[in-house]
């Protein structure tokens, strides 16, 4: 798999992502800065977490306008796979690659804790190693992760099976208590209609080794590795 990680001033989770991709694929991803051009022949582009451009205006709004995002949009338009985690999810939304918006957490608190996610859409390049309904632990660390979209958009996402992950409790129930940031319908991650762009707030890349405290997030990267095994 040929993967590239795109960073902006203020990105800070790129090394975690690099470790996760390398662990699952055995190949070191290409590390790109916002001024670089996206090279040809990539299988996957990843936008990692952080605070790009100091979260000025809105989280992800400045990064979404940076030159490399034009390349990322072209890449996605041609059917390329793109993963955005945390600030990367915010950037994908601001760039119009995924619908909705991410509001301030309803508690107004920065949430730094583990959450439990339920896989709502299996069988994609990001989720094939899980069964639908499987739950796994994922760390989260964000101040603006409160997913919002209007009812028509939400109904379309649900109807087309584009909700990737939901916040759930330990029994796998999508309760209000498990929904710490207040996301509408407990949505933690979504997919584009062609299932090739995926964004989520929690950090599967931070649980990919027993030394990190677990490997709950590894299936995402193994799924990607499997999807592009021939490449």
């Amino acid at each position: 798999m040929k993967a590239a990680i795109v960073t902006f001033p203020g990105t800070n989770r790129e090394r975690d992502m690099r470790v996760a991709l390398k662990r699952a694929t055995g190949r070191d991803p290409l590390m790109l800065f916002h001024r670089d051009a996206l090279p040809q022949g990539l299988d996957l582009v990843v936008l990692p977490g952080g605070f790009s451009y100091g979260d000025y205006l809105r989280c992800g709004a400045m990064a979404a306008q940076s030159p490399i995002m034009r390349d990322v949009k072209d890449f996605a338009a041609k059917g390329g796979h793109v993963l955005g985690v945390c600030n990367g999810f915010q950037i994908l939304i601001e760039a119009g690659l995924l619908p909705g918006g991410l509001l301030r957490n309803r508690t107004l608190r920065f949430l730094s804790m583990d959450c439990t996610l339920r896989v709502e859409r299996a069988g994609t390049a990001f989720t094939s190693r899980w069964q639908k309904g499987a739950t796994f632990r994922a760390p989260m660390a964000h101040g603006d992760g409160n997913y919002f979209a209007d009812d028509a958009t939400l109904d379309r996402l649900e109807g087309e099976g584009l909700v990737a992950f939901r916040y759930v409790d330990e029994r796998g129930e999508a309760t209000e208590a498990a929904n710490r940031n207040g996301s509408v319908r407990n949505i933690a991650g979504i997919l584009s209609p062609n299932l090739r762009v995926c964004g989520l707030m929690p950090h599967p890349e931070d649980l990919v080794d027993d030394l990190m405290g677990g490997t709950d997030g590894l299936p995402m990267f193994e799924s990607l590795a499997e999807a592009f095994a021939a490449a």
Binding site: L103, R106, L108
Partner: peptide
Amino acid sequence: MPKAGVLDPQGKAI
């Protein structure tokens, strides 16, 4: 401004 009907946690805290 936050749209009508959209939760405004900052406004609530203020």
